[in-house]
Computed example of a mutant assay.
Amino acid sequence: MLKSLLSSIGVSSFERSAADLFRHYAEQWADTVRQDYFGNTVATMNTGAKYRVLLSAHIDEVGFQVTEVCQNGLLKVRGIGGVCPARLNTQQVVVCADCGYVNGVMVSTPMTNDGKMPDIKDFFVDIDCQNREQAMQLIELGAPVAFMPNYSVHDSVITSKSIDDRVGCYVVLEVMKRLKGRLKKIRLSVAATTQEEIGLRGMAAVAQTEQPDMAINVDVTDAEQLDKTSRPRMGEGCAIVLNADSHAMFRERVIKTASRANIALQKCLGREITGGSDSSRMQIFSPKTLVGELVIPCKYMHSHTEKCSLNDIESCINIITDLLTGLDEELA
């Protein structure tokens, strides 16, 4: 399931293929599954229970969109989400076309004329076409472009595109799978939200329609790496966010749950003190919801070769599973 989710294609606002895969898995354990006009997928089990818990993660990934087909057959693109241009040259991509996926390579001169590193506007996608007419037989303007699937695992470390945030989608599905038939008082929903990378748009709709009592968002965060210090380390557990995205009551419950069950847990400051993930949209559009966020350390975010640890994914699953099991017993 994890490899399939990471390998699926779902650039922000073009998430249907990845969202349908999420739905396919969710239908195995949920009582009901629905999708809205945003493309959000919400699956629910134990629908008769009164206390509503929502687990969420965003299904979309960063990518590009074709803006021009050039006379020489190359494609000009614009970025969708926060893609780092310094990591793009010669990366393999796929262009989503009516005929299927067309393989391509991101190309640019090493430097611009003024000696600066190239921006996304300086890149082209080479799809092995000799001229515009040949390229137009395959590609239409507006076609989404994604990093080519490249999943691999070595010593419990995953390298792949779209770890942000398909690992979160995997976590919430796995929690639902493990809790199937075990909850008595909790109505559990899991959501794969869309368009997070371009403004947290999907969660704004989910928050207003679901209005849960508790919401737990699962995302990734920058791990300690070459240019980022004092961050959570890969392989030492998921992390609880200490900014406004997590309510103090939620943080306290998570820390106690991890300590009692001896599950690895780190602490993380988060993006900004004011938030910046789907959690913030849940807080704004469903103000009666107790909101919290757990994050998985990730290296080289928004690139073709993101990295995370299977151990951190498992710690996140275990913490949420234990937390909800304990909460269900309290509500009995």
Rank of each mutant, 00 (worst) to 15 (best):
M45K: 08
Q65F: 02
L88W: 06
E61F: 06
L55T: 04
I59D: 09
N113A: 15
T67M: 08
E68I: 13
T47L: 10
V94M: 04
L75G: 03
G104R: 00
T90N: 12
V77S: 05
A43D: 06
G79F: 02
R52A: 14
A86K: 12
N46W: 05
A49K: 07
T44K: 02
Q65P: 00
C99T: 15
D36A: 10
Q91M: 12
Q71A: 15
A30V: 00
D60N: 11
V102N: 06
I59L: 15
V93Q: 03
K50L: 12
D98W: 02
W29G: 04
Y101I: 06
D114C: 12
E61Y: 04
Q92V: 05
A49S: 11
D36S: 13
A97Q: 06
E61V: 07
M106Q: 04
V93I: 10
Y37V: 10
G73S: 08
V33P: 09
V94D: 09
K50F: 11
C70A: 12
R78M: 13
V95Q: 08
N113R: 15
P85V: 07
D114W: 04
F38I: 09
N72H: 05
L55F: 09
V77M: 11
G100T: 02
V105T: 06
D98F: 02
R34Y: 10
H58K: 03
G115F: 04
G63C: 04
D60K: 02
F38R: 09
Q65E: 12
Y101W: 11
Q92K: 15
